[in-house]
Design a protein around this nucleic acid. Structure first.
Lengths: 219, 219
DNA sequence: TATTCATTCAATAAATCTATTGAATGATAG
DNA sequence: CTATCATTCAATAGATTTATTGAATGAATA
């Protein structure tokens, strides 16, 4: 096999990945699944498509190995095949935001509509971390925390927050972060924290951006 | 405008980016342009397509704002619109390699076919950097170096290497790196260095991988 | 001005993608 | 066993994508 054939096959494989993502519904499904697994019905409801159409898109994603499925009883639960899938998604979002002011504005408005506009920038968080002023919470799944996290951050996965609530100090500001600016895990966490009397705010972006900027991380 | 409309527009914008990349030829063009600007003719030759076809694909990429074009005399020179485009490409390659052993093997063979298989892993380089044993060269364009680079690395852009050759020590091992495992800038650099009597080897991956792993970087 | 030549445009057929509809499957509950 | 219900399958029409062909454009050069 010559170089050209090698290349052709590599690029074809990569194009398959991209093609699987090249549809607005499927883009939305990826973001939805990045927040956790879901049934076909759940996905269809949250993306406002028909069940049959959602199923069809999910099968397209599955064929490209971007999502996996597990059957429990009557339900099929879909989830991301790998966090790398979300990394691709996030890189596209990052590109979209930089090349298109419209997208940045849309995301800003989208987050505003979730009533969670307040957030700290990476620079602000770095300052607070170095001054020991803020308690940093990583609310992503444990496995992703183990792959790398912001220095000094504690791992409290989103779905275990209530159990760990009592161990958190009320006199310190808490900054929660997750996978990126559109990821809802941190939004959910600060909502719960604020309802229980903590002072919590989210990092405006997520771990990938922090790491990419060269800010201090731990493994 | 309600939340659903916001979302729909964001995801449509992201799908446009993905769609523009969802073709093997265009994937190859992105990788080619990541090594530097090129005319339509140059791109058509290197991707083994017709001029008209290459032009058509380039216009698709341009419409999605992934590449930009500059006219000089009779020639149109295309280049990546932003390094973030290559970040997306790289994230896809990373995903493709992890989900598909075939792709990893293909890339391994592809690099072998360029006679540049020898390389150091990130862990090996970290050890050498911390021991002060290796001189690290960043051969990407200066602008990308300024965005962030491996700790202790010197910036010697690929096309300025010959001018800076005399300032490099011959008694120290040199490790060159660029944008990723498929990026040819470091391959070219170590070829030149070895031809001039230096001991040079490349990092098997590139800056994005180094940074993502949380290894020491500088800005 | 006329010629050359890199690039783009236009038209087309074959292939692929999408949403919709309604039927089929197959596991659970009664 | 039968009914229910989540999901998948199959068929289809309309839209989009692709490679190819040949013509058009327009800047440089003779």
């Amino acid at each position: 096999m010559n170089t050209r054939d090698f290349k052709h096959r590599i690029y074809s494989e990569l194009a398959i990945i991209s093609k699987a993502l090249s549809n607005p519904h499927r883009m939305e499904i990826i973001e939805l699944l990045a927040q956790g697994p879901g049934s076909v019905e759940h996905i269809a409801e949250n993306t406002e498509t028909s069940i049959a159409n959602a199923s069809q898109h999910l099968q397209t994603l599955k064929a490209a190995r971007l999502v996996k499925t597990e059957k429990k009883g009557k339900y099929s639960y879909y989830s991301l095949a790998d966090i790398k899938v979300y990394n691709v998604w996030n890189a596209m979002r990052d590109l979209g935001m930089s090349q298109n002011a419209e997208v940045e504005k849309l995301i800003h408005n989208f987050r505003k509509s979730r009533h969670n506009l307040e957030s700290v920038t990476m620079d602000q968080l770095l300052e607070r971390v170095q001054g020991g002023k803020a308690l940093v919470l990583d609310v992503r799944p444990q496995s992703e925390y183990n792959e790398g996290h912001i220095s000094t951050a504690l791992s409290i996965p989103h779905d275990e927050l209530l159990q760990h609530l009592s161990s958190l100090p009320k006199n310190k500001e808490i900054v929660a972060y997750c996978r990126g600016p559109l990821c809802a895990l941190a939004d959910d966490a600060i909502k719960v924290l604020n309802e229980h009397g903590y002072r919590a705010i989210r990092l405006e972006v997520g771990y990938p951006e922090w790491s990419a900027k060269g800010f201090p991380v731990e493994n």
